[in-house]
Design a protein around this nucleic acid. Structure first.
Length: 315
RNA sequence: GCCGAGGUAGCUCAGUCGGUAGAGCGAGGGCCUGAAAAGCCCUGCGUCAUCAGUUCAAUUCUGAUUCUCGGCA
């Protein structure tokens, strides 16, 4: 708390991110750090934006939400689709609000793409064109695997080179952009400006040894069931979840159980496995980012980690 | 104690009519711009239980040992 005036000076030019794989312990650390910095928390998470998806997405507890003002949590009904672009737009608004209060901008979350979209920027393009995507997908089915990839190679050789022919989703996206703008996505990507052109960005990534992380993941999944993941899933099931909300880990598998495709035990194990795999993918994304400062947690308590981060920010 | 089956990749197992081995799952690594908690790609040297014998050559055949699982006592 004594650091306020010191930090105040550069509040306007620096932005902090606290990231890390799921279950590593970001939330607890973020509460302490936000208090030390006397600021709010902006969530950088693709699933915690949804209302009613609390237990399964590992949202901060009510008590934690009361201690520090949070943004980008519970901002959308789970029947609505959500995208990086939606996130970026809303998050940029949050930044303005917090800067307006003279506070430090502090993001916390595990969705690496969303962080990148903020830091590096996103080129502007028309919103997703579902009809076109479905049409393209049909073409791929009719003409065989690799058909769309060949189409893309014709119009945008550079993007095609970066994609695997089986990566249909990205091939379709690249074709969609080209069809709707007349400009190859590979060209558009070059012309983006993000937060890093205006602010100094500091990214901390929490991590722990793999075994320990996996233990935490499994314990957390067990705890989710104790807290009522089943009941929460039932409540969500009667609404019709949007395509994006439906993808959230935990609910997917529980729906499998509720539909009788999985035993409860199998569903639980599947959630654990899928979450482990997810954490691995998150780490792969963070590792690829040279500018990240890694913070290895072993036995340290959340408060101690927060203090360490705070000291680093003073320098 | 006796009879039977078996010990091969982290797990479940296949296989080698003797030329040092392969699937599934798991796991590890990577990619990533409006679905990202999604999607996509790559990765299998492992004392073939141990020791000895036969053989140019044994994980494969023979014997002993050991462990596991069934059945009978």
């Amino acid at each position: 708390m004594v650091f306020h005036h010191v930090l105040q000076a550069d509040n306007m030019k620096s932005i902090i991110f606290l990231v890390g794989p799921t279950a590593v312990g970001k939330t607890a650390v973020s509460i302490y750090l936000a208090k030390m910095l006397n600021t709010d928390i902006i969530s950088c998470d693709s699933m915690q934006v949804y209302k009613g998806m609390d237990i399964g997405t590992g949202k901060p507890a009510l008590a934690q939400l009361r201690q520090v003002p949070h943004h980008m949590i519970d901002v959308l009904s789970p029947v609505r689709n959500f995208s990086v672009a939606d996130f970026r737009k809303k998050a940029l608004d949050c930044i303005e609000v917090i800067k307006g209060k003279g506070k430090k901008v502090f993001f916390v979350g595990g969705t690496a793409l969303y962080m990148r979209a903020l830091i590096d920027g996103l080129f502007s393009s028309p919103p997703a064109d579902r009809a076109l995507r479905n049409r393209l997908l049909r073409q791929e089915k009719i003409n065989g695997r690799g058909y769309l990839y060949k189409q893309l190679s014709r119009v945008d050789k550079n993007s095609a080179k970066l994609l695997h022919p089986n990566d249909t989703r990205r091939v379709i996206r690249a074709l969609e952009v080209y069809t709707n703008t007349g400009i190859p996505i590979s060209v558009l990507k070059k012309g983006t400006r993000g937060l890093k052109s205006k602010y100094s960005i500091k990214v901390f990534c929490l991590n722990r040894n793999r075994k320990e992380l996996y233990n935490l993941i499994e314990a957390r999944v067990d705890y989710m069931f104790k807290r009522g993941l089943l009941a929460e899933s039932r409540r969500l099931k009667v609404k019709k979840l949007s395509m994006t909300a439906r993808q959230a880990l935990g609910y997917r598998e529980v729906f499998g159980y509720l539909d009788g495709r999985l035993t409860l035990k199998a569903a639980k194990e599947l959630i654990k496995k899928n979450t482990r795999n997810f954490a691995k993918r998150q780490l792969s994304w963070f590792r690829n980012d040279e500018s990240i400062e890694w913070i290895d947690i072993d036995k340290e308590k959340p408060k101690e980690i927060a203090e360490i981060l705070c000291k680093k920010l003073m320098k």
